[in-house]
């Protein structure tokens, strides 16, 4: 009897802990938890200075007034950024004229020349689709952290990162993150 009661009590506590730890089963991965969190509480991104593929500088806050879709990439990315590229090309063709696209590189090695390669390869033209880096490491890290982007070296000179399409509304708040394949969902917002 004592054993059964204790077992039931342990099971109840364990189930409660697992439920709490997964947002009631909605988020098993930190990626899912991050997206839920952003959708529930939109946040402002730090106003970093961006250096784009033409060598020009622009503040992230200058994008306010129209919706913006962000992606985080690095210029020499061979795989996941191709999925993002397809998504951005599709968005470029279908989004309203006022909306903007911004590819932000998290790779400190990406200078104007390398950003230019990336832009040429993907058919990106400023100001509609800007490819930019953040020169200042502190600002770059602050932006990545605020957006919840985790970048780890892949051991072959490249990076692995959680890829997504980041929707920033006209007020400059990050309101949602979508899978690279989910351009439909993004346009519906």
């Amino acid at each position: 009897m004592r054993a059964a009661l204790a077992t039931v009590a342990v099971a109840a506590i364990g189930a409660a802990a697992l439920s709490w730890g997964t947002d009631q089963g909605a988020a098993l991965t930190s990626e899912a938890a991050r997206r839920l969190d952003i959708a529930a509480t939109p946040r402002f991104l730090p106003d970093v200075t961006l250096h784009d593929q033409t060598g020009g500088a622009v503040a992230l806050s200058a994008y306010r007034g129209a919706p913006l879709v962000l992606e985080f990439v690095y210029a020499t990315c061979p795989d996941i950024c191709l999925a993002l590229r397809t998504a951005f090309e599709r968005l470029d063709a279908t989004m309203p004229a006022g909306a903007r696209l911004l590819s932000v590189s998290f790779d400190p090695r990406d200078d104007t020349e390398r950003l230019g390669w990336f832009a040429d390869r993907h058919g990106a033209g400023a100001p509609r689709w800007r490819v930019a880096g953040v020169a200042d490491a502190l600002s770059r890290n602050a932006l990545l952290e605020r957006a919840g982007v985790v970048v780890i070296p892949d051991g072959m000179g490249g990076y692995v990162h959680n890829a997504g399409l980041y929707l920033v509304d006209a007020e400059g708040r990050l309101t949602a993150v979508f899978d690279p394949e989910d351009t439909e969902g993004l346009r519906a917002c």
Binding site: T7, G14, G21, T22, T29, S30, A32, A33
Partner: peptide, 29 residues
């Protein structure tokens, strides 16, 4: 002897919590 089953269950549940991918990530961050 009565404590054997609840103890083993507690061990399994606590372990499964830390096998959740979101908590593996969180513990590294």
């Amino acid at each position: 002897a009565w404590s054997a089953a609840p103890a083993l269950l507690a061990a399994a549940l606590a372990l499964s919590f830390w096998l959740l991918p979101c908590w593996i990530d969180a513990s590294l961050a």
